[in-house]
């Protein structure tokens, strides 16, 4: 399974990772190699097999719908790149 430069560029954009054209060419090779490798999976017929999502096949636990966590905004914002008046700042989105 070989990918094209265009496909790699599109995937990188979906993943929000900026890549240049030189990098894209390198990823074309790496990702195509990996996809060729994982294609070994196709050697087995799995049409009758249930997919396994959890190693122990256990359901997710439920708990009471009660407040257990307290607001730690100051602590969390103390490690943020840019905050103001208790808000996280990003470049202007709406003109």
């Amino acid at each position: 399974m070989a990918l094209s430069v265009e496909e790699v560029t599109r995937i990188a954009y979906l993943a929000r990772i900026g890549i240049g054209s030189e990098e894209a060419a390198r990823y074309v090779k790496d990702l195509s190699d990996i996809l060729a490798f994982v294609a070994q999976m196709n050697a087995v017929d799995t049409s009758e097999v249930e997919p396994m999502a959890h190693p122990l096949d256990l359901p997710q636990r439920l708990r009471e719908d009660a407040v257990t966590e307290h607001n730690k905004r100051e602590l969390f914002q103390s490690i943020a790149p840019q905050v103001e008046a208790g808000l996280y700042l990003v470049p202007k989105v709406i003109e």
């Binding site: 993943a15 929000r16 990772i17 969390f76 943020a80 840019q82 990003v90 470049p91």
Partner: peptide
């Protein structure tokens, strides 16, 4: 946005995501 590395001088939000992660 909330913690960790952020790129220098992002020109818009998209640029912030793309370059921070790159």
């Amino acid at each position: 946005v909330r913690y960790g590395y952020r790129c220098q001088n992002p020109k818009d939000l998209k640029d912030l995501y793309l370059r921070t992660r790159a």
